[in-house]
Design a protein around this nucleic acid. Structure first.
Lengths: 235, 235
DNA sequence: ATGTGATTTGTACTATCGTACAAAAGATCA
DNA sequence: TGATCTTTTGTACGATAGTACAAATCACAT
């Protein structure tokens, strides 16, 4: 049976959502271990016991955050990837593919407020902390998508070995993560000329740089053809 | 007065060093907050109280790890950068500069065993966790070096705006960090064809990709000259 | 050998952690 | 209204955290 959604969803403060939002925010900034259940409850204006009631454990809370975002974000990526694959021009297609990977990570990957940037930052931090809950759910949720992107890129760059493409897409994710983790560093190093927190700039810069990286000549593992500049490594 | 170093340094178990090494290892893998002083002491075969004796606090221990590595690593980077700057050919010089930035992060940045990769991974994790102690010492230790590298790259790529170079070197560091944090992901996504843990591969791949990224055409902030492929963002 | 300073050990203290659980409060419908 | 289910609150418990500190031990010059 379907009750009128307005009177139910709108009126209630919906503590569950508030807790999720607060946890997401705090985890994304400080990491999983540095944030206590009490911190989260306080930030959400809830009682510590309420967190246990809704999510049973702290791990369960993190798990629910992932469940909330992974689906929509993956879906959006798939849609954008499918559209990108239909681009005729090979150069344009590559850029469209990269964009399809990057954009959902910055903009809202779901209908939740604040957008996907926070969740992507959360993923970056969890990955750095080696969080087990995150590791498991990520591997089983994003690896398919990652393979799809790698395949698509490989299709538009047939002369580049798959191995190289894997490395370069790995670098892309690392750059993406780091841009969300310490945007202030960009502002600082550019002496205020660039705003590291500006998502639009980050996306454009990242796409431009990454497309060029993908197009770099392949590494010939057998015989290094090009003379390599030698730098003294004496101490 | 100088006592014979063999009888003094070699014979003693040197708990202080063991604690430092254990802490570095554990922090780099699990993050700062997830590792307890007792964990460190146990891994080093020491008593928890001994950690307090040598480093006063847990923060002090982390600080000492940074102090131990930052100097040598910065020095080595400066040397390599100076050598790279003397490379005549502009293309080769750019590659040498990037290499001067990347290599010390992977190989031993100091004379300590295990090499700088562990310390670089530690930095990556601390950065993700937003660790205050690390943030402070990093900003005051590495920003000068970072600026020097940015300037050097700018010199060899005069037609690229400094802002773009800052972004791209930021991406470089992010890719570098991520390669050290989750090397297994490379192995997994390449279906075993690449070994993400192999430092030599990582360095070559990273250098090659990054050089290409730096050489990408600049982003014209005023008027986007090139037609940009549009991808439907309908849901 | 012995005294002295450096180091290691063992233990204890307080704070805070995740979580459990009973009671209170609120919502829903006959 | 009263019964029933859901949600929130308050409190408590055991575990573990960082750190302090006195006692024990070690290294070594005299």
């Amino acid at each position: 049976m379907i009750r009128k959604p307005t009177s139910k969803e709108a009126r209630k403060p919906n503590m569950r959502e508030a807790i999720l939002a607060a946890a997401e925010e705090l985890f994304a900034i400080n990491g999983f271990n540095a944030v206590s259940v009490r911190d989260i409850a306080h930030a959400a204006g809830a009682n510590p016991g309420s967190v246990t009631y809704h999510f049973k454990t702290k791990d369960g809370l993190l798990l629910e955050i992932y469940r909330r975002h992974c689906g929509p974000m993956n879906l959006r990526r798939s849609e954008l990837l499918a559209a990108a694959r239909r681009v005729r021009d090979l150069q344009d297609r590559l850029e469209a593919i990269v964009r399809a990977y990057v954009v959902p990570a910055f903009t809202s990957g779901s209908d939740l407020a604040g957008g996907g940037a926070r969740f992507t930052r959360l993923r970056a931090v969890m990955s750095a902390e080696g969080n087990e809950v995150a590791r498991k759910i990520i591997a089983q949720t994003f690896d398919d998508t990652s393979h799809a992107f790698i395949d698509a890129i490989h299709d538009s760059l047939p002369h580049i070995p798959r191995t190289d493409i894997v490395w370069r897409s790995h670098f892309l994710l690392g750059a993406l993560y780091y841009s969300l983790v310490t945007p202030d560093r960009v502002s600082r190093l550019s002496r205020g000329e660039a705003d590291g927190g500006d998502a639009a700039s980050a996306i454009e810069q990242l796409v431009q740089a990454t497309v060029a990286a993908f197009q770099a000549p392949p590494l010939d593992h057998a015989a290094p053809a090009r003379r390599r500049p030698v730098v003294s490594s004496k101490t």
